[in-house]
Amino acid sequence: MSADARTAILARIRAAQRTAYIPDMKDTPRTLEPQTASVEESLARFTKELELLGVASHVEATPDAVRARVKELIAGKRVLAWDAEHLPYDVGSLAKDAILGRDDRDTQAGAEIGLSGVHGAIAETGSLVVRSGKGTSRTVTLLPPELVAVVGREQLCFSMGELFQKQEKAMAGAACTIAITGPSRTADIELQLTLGVHGPGKVTVVVGP
């Protein structure tokens, strides 16, 4: 049936294309160059956007400072983490007994805080970009009520367009790429902002050197 439906639909579309009235836009350019910026500018914009989103950010100068900050943020909490080898600045060493993405579902769902790195970040929108893969479970940034994400300064792009250009190959290699922009939210009830409906309601970003 599917093959028949496909043939019928495509034939109908081809017939329709002959009579379709579609506005002509000859004078409009077809593409726009994505915006880029220096690392300093990008970092300044990134932290400003995070603040607008209600995300606390800590910019640290040394790997030691990053680890100290992360240690403080996850202290006393049951952690669901990316595999240590995927976490930057050796922050994995702070959560040696963390729950991992390959553990049982219900165990993962019981975690109190997620600890992840990122595969990229977008300054213009304050977004964290993560890809699915071995050791970088999708659940880490999704299931716990809180998330700590560690970002390397050099991972910043200014715009999403720039990130798409730079990371096409890596994105093609992953089943799933996600841009996370702030805490999970809804305004479905009387337009009142409510955080943490399904994903983390609290997000903290630690930026390393």
Partner: peptide, 16 residues
């Protein structure tokens, strides 16, 4: 908040 882009089902060594 969540912009999710799929390039297929889970890969053999994906966690989920």
């Amino acid at each position: 908040v969540y912009t999710t882009m799929f390039r297929g089902p889970r890969r053999p060594d994906d966690e989920d």
